[in-house]
């Protein structure tokens, strides 16, 4: 479940946590300040969707501990992320 290592200065799970926080702030900032950033809406939407996939995979691998699992269960979160994300991506891209 966890990514603890006693001799590490900072626990790997803490690094993942900080990465998740950073990616969340990036998602929020892209949405909040896109008027100034000027990304096309399709690029903005696909970028934040991609960030969400990355965050979900990090949670599955490091917080849920699936990177230490082999077999079908290893990929349950990955498959779940890809299924709705591909449908969401298709629906959004077809609407522009």
């Amino acid at each position: 479940m966890t990514t603890t290592r006693r001799n590490a200065l900072v626990r790997p799970c803490t690094i993942i946590y900080l990465l998740l926080i950073g990616l969340t702030l990036l998602t929020w900032a892209l949405g909040r300040f896109n008027d100034r950033i000027g990304l096309p809406v399709a690029t903005l939407s696909m970028t934040v969707l991609g960030i969400a996939l990355l965050k979900g995979q990090l949670i599955g691998d490091f917080f849920m501990g699936l990177r230490r699992v082999r077999g079908a269960w290893r990929w349950v979160v990955t498959l779940w992320l890809l299924l709705p994300a591909s449908l969401i991506g298709y629906a959004f891209l077809s609407s522009y």
Partner: peptide, 17 residues
């Protein structure tokens, strides 16, 4: 963690995209 995982998609989908 599953509850967290769901919100990770819900947040950009409803609030940002």
């Amino acid at each position: 963690h599953m509850v967290d995982l769901v919100w990770i998609i819900l947040f950009p989908l409803v609030y940002v995209m």
